[in-house]
Amino acid sequence: MGDPIHQFEIKKFFTLGHLGPYEIAFTNSALFMLIAFAIVALLMLVPTRQRALVPGRLQSIAELSYEFIASTIRSSAGNEGMRFFPLVFSLFMFILVVNLLGLLPYAFTVTSHIIVTVALALLVFFTVVIYGFYKHGLRFLRLFVPSGIPIYILPLVTAIEVMSFLSRPISHSVRLFANMLAGHITLKVFAGFVTMLGGAGILGWFGAVLPLGLTVALTALELLVAVLQAYVFAILTCIYLNDALHPGH
């Protein structure tokens, strides 16, 4: 079974070309992104093709995901937040499907690579900053100046607010990355115990029952974490977007 790190290895299938000094290759990561894209596209497009008034099972899933994200946005960023609906929807569905795909045996988890989560978090961050300045101009900076604070500690509070704002993409991305990474390593280690003990004869068979049970439980937990982390990423996106929409608090 071996190394629990092995599953995070990027495998290059073929090289496409070079972008400056960087090699651009089609890798297992890209493959799983493509699969995730295909799954989302199939889920959203095929069952809704007939636009049935009474939805079938798959169409209900498409509608449920739509309404779930719409209500998440409305409750945390208000109705104006709906202009970011496609963004939040794409983020949620992409992360969700990619996380779930990563639970399959031999599959690769795209979100277990920090560069991916950082890119997504920065996408949200810059969307907030750019839209905030575009919509409110310099008044967007009022986000960092809470009202009702005495003037002599205002610089300190503003500095803390700025740090809080700037550290968001870090926690936003590290949270998703660390959850997926840690979960998959734990899972792999316990599964490794099972095969190790199972190979150690009759006594090992009994010994393997406990880690096996734990592996099953962990898999269920990881399933929950995969969904939860996609949801957390989406709702934090909504909350950050809310700052761009209403910087005055």
């Binding site: 740090m163 809080s164 700037l166 550290s167 968001r168 870090i170 926690s171 936003h172 590290v174 949270r175 660390a178 959850n179 929950l224 974490v225 939860l228 957390v232």
Partner: peptide, 17 residues
């Protein structure tokens, strides 16, 4: 998962600082 989620906020702030 909840504690994990919150601790990343703290770690993120310190890292950035």
């Amino acid at each position: 998962a909840r504690g994990f989620r919150l601790s990343t906020e703290l770690v993120g702030g310190v890292l950035l600082g």
